[in-house]
């Protein structure tokens, strides 16, 4: 066990972080700009897709998920699965009924 304890996993240089930061800021700009235009039902979808892309960047680069082992990725998949399935199952109720 002791052999693997001191592992320094790879992290990124300053430049990569600045690049990611720049991407995040740009995406924020896009999402604000786009919010003004009315896509109808797609407005929310656009906002959430952009937010997901930003989250992906933060997770993989800032949070170093890219250099973690597969176990961590499976963990995140499990947590996300639990959350998403809760949403889906909950909406099997709310999508098909109006209670008031």
């Amino acid at each position: 066990m002791s052999d693997i304890s001191h592992n320094h996993h790879k992290t990124h240089g300053y430049g990569v972080y600045f690049l990611v930061w720049f991407a995040l800021m740009t995406l924020t700009g896009i999402t604000v700009a786009v919010a003004g235009i009315n896509f109808g039902g797609l407005t929310i979808a656009t906002a959430l897709i952009i937010a997901s892309v930003k989250t992906y960047l933060v997770l993989t680069i800032f949070m170093h998920l890219r250099s973690e082992t597969v176990v961590f990725k499976v963990f995140i998949a499990v947590a996300m699965f639990f959350l998403i399935i809760s949403f889906i199952l909950l909406f099997t109720d709310y999508s098909f009924i109006v209670r008031n």
Binding site: T31, V32, T43, A47, L48, K54, T55, V58, L59, F62
Partner: peptide
């Protein structure tokens, strides 16, 4: 970073819609 991620979602859901 997690606190940041939460905000990434809160922002559009409250301010942009």
């Amino acid at each position: 970073h997690l606190v940041d991620i939460i905000w990434i979602f809160l922002f559009p859901l409250f301010y942009l819609i």
